[in-house]
Amino acid sequence: MALGGRPVAPQLRASAPALTRSVLRRLLAELPVYAALPDEELAGDIAEIVQHTLRLFADVIERRQPMDGPDLAPQRISAAQRAEEGVPLDAILTAYQIGVEMCWRETTARARPDELPAVLELSTHLLRLQRELIASVSAAYLEARELLEGDEYSDRRLLLASLLAGEEPDVVAGRTGVRPAARYVVLTLALAAHPDEARPGPVAVIAARRKLRRIRQALDRFTGEPALTALDAAGGTALLAVDAPPPWPSLDALIAHAAESAGTPVTAAAAITEPADIPAAVTRNAEVVRLVRDSGRGPGLYRLADVLLDYQLSRPSAASAGLAGLLAPLDHKPDLLLTLETLLTHDLDRRATAATLHLHPNTVDYRIRRVAALTGLSPNRTSDLHHLNAALVARRCM
C-alpha cells in the first residue's frame, strides 16, 4: 500500500521513533495522570509500548491482514502493570486513542485525491486495530484489578497470615484450602526509596507501586509461582515455596536482580525453613537486617552467619558493657572513632579509608596511633584487632 507515492509501512517504521516522541508530548499535555508519571516510566515502559504499537500497525498494513492474538501480548502486559500502579483505565484508553489519531495523521498526510481507496483501506485496518487494542487492553486491565482484589489474592494473604502465625500445616490447610509447601525461603527485605518517590504529587505513589511490582515479579520468576508477600514501600516479608533448598548464590543473584529491576538498593536476610519455624525465621531475619544496617554494611543478601558476632553481642550479657568500655576513651573524639570504624570496614586498607573519609593516608595513620595511645589497642596487632571489632559491635548494640 502506498500513499503520496511512497509505501506506507516502511515510512511508518522509519518515523516511529519521532512519532513516539510526539505522542508522548501530547500525553503529557492532555492527560494529567501521564504528566505525573515518573520520567523513567515514560521514557521506558510507555515509550516502548507506543513504538511497538506503531510498528505493529506497519506490519498490519504490509500484510493487509488482521493481527494475530499474540501480537498484542506486550499491550496486555503493559495494561496489567498500569493496573497494579493504579493508573485509571480511562486514561490508558484515551492514550491509545491519541496514538491511533496521530498514527492516522502521519500515514495519510501526503495522500493524493486519487488515492482515496487506499486511504479508506488504511482507515479500515486502523479502526480494526483500535477496536482490538481497546478490547485486549481493557480485558487485561480488569483481569489484573480482579486478581488484586479477588479470592485468589485473598487466599494467598490468608495462607501467608497463617504461616506467619506459626499454625500447624493441617490447621493451615483447613483454614485456607491450601496445604503449605514442605519448606520455604523466608526473606526479609529492606527497600530504599526510589528517587521518584521523593517527587511531589501522585508520582511518588506510582513510583512506590512500580517498585513493589518489580520486586514481586522478580520473586515470582524465581520459583515460577506467585510468592507470598507482605510488602510496602519500605520492605517487608516474602515466602518462596521450594522443593529443595536453593543454592545460596542463586538467592544472592535473586536479590541483586530484584534491586536492579526496581532501581533501588535492597538489603535482605534469608533463611530456609519448614513451615513451623517461619515465625522464628522472620524474627531472626529482621534482627539480621537491623544489624547489617547498623554496622554500615552495604545492600545485598545476608544470613545469620554473616553477622554472628554482632548477633551474639546484641544479646544481653555482662561482657557487653565491658567490651564497649574498651573504647570509652574515644567517647568525645568522634573523628578517631569514625576513622577506626572505617579502617576496619575496609579490612585495614588505609588508602581506601583515606579516600572514604577524604583524608590523606598519613592522617589516617596519625589517628590510628592516637586510638592506640588512648585505648591501648591497635588494629595493627592481631590480638587487639579482635577486641576492637567486638568493642565496636558492642557499642552499636547498647
Rank of each mutant, 00 (worst) to 15 (best):
R105P: 10
L385K: 14
A173E: 14
P245G: 09
T229C: 14
L348V: 07
R128M: 10
P245I: 08
R156T: 00
D39V: 13
Q81D: 13
A208M: 02
P88T: 01
L122A: 07
Y302C: 05
G322N: 14
A241Y: 05
G86Q: 02
P202A: 03
D39Q: 15
A43N: 15
V87N: 04
F57S: 06
L163Y: 01
I98S: 03
L326H: 12
E30C: 09
Y96S: 03
G263Y: 02
R209A: 03
D90G: 11
G177W: 03
R26P: 04
V282G: 03
A258N: 07
R63H: 06
R131M: 14
I278W: 05
T229E: 09
L240R: 02
L160C: 05
G4P: 00
A253C: 08
L164C: 04
L323P: 02
L158C: 01
T20I: 12
P202Y: 01
Y302D: 00
L344H: 11
R76Q: 10
V60S: 07
V242Q: 03
P379V: 01
E40A: 11
A73N: 11
V33M: 06
P32W: 11
A271M: 08
M102Y: 06
A281T: 09
R128S: 10
G69Y: 14
G322R: 15
R351H: 14
E146V: 01
Q75R: 07
G86T: 01
D277A: 15
I134E: 13
Y184I: 05
H386Q: 14
V282P: 03
P113R: 12
P200Y: 00
L336C: 10
P117C: 10
H194W: 04
L129V: 12
R370S: 13
L338P: 04
A281D: 05
N362L: 11
R395S: 06
E115C: 07
R175A: 08
R157M: 10
D155V: 15
L392S: 07
T188H: 10
D232C: 10
R55A: 12
H358S: 15
L219N: 02
G166F: 05
E143Q: 15
R216N: 05
A193P: 02
P202K: 00
E132R: 15
T53D: 13
R55L: 12
A165V: 00
L120A: 09
H332L: 12
A262G: 06
G4R: 01
A207F: 03
V50R: 12
T188P: 02
E152L: 12
V33G: 03
D151E: 13
Q130C: 13
P245N: 07
A238W: 09
G325C: 03
A227L: 06
V87M: 05
E62Y: 11
A190L: 12
A80S: 11
A227V: 07
T339D: 07
D277H: 14
L164D: 04
T229D: 10
P38C: 11
T345V: 13
L126I: 02
R156L: 01
A144E: 09
L160S: 00
G166I: 01
L338C: 08
R156Y: 01
A18T: 12
L385D: 07
A262R: 05
R369Q: 15
V178M: 08
R156S: 04
A16D: 11
I368D: 04
H360Y: 08
I278Q: 07
Q65F: 12
R156H: 02
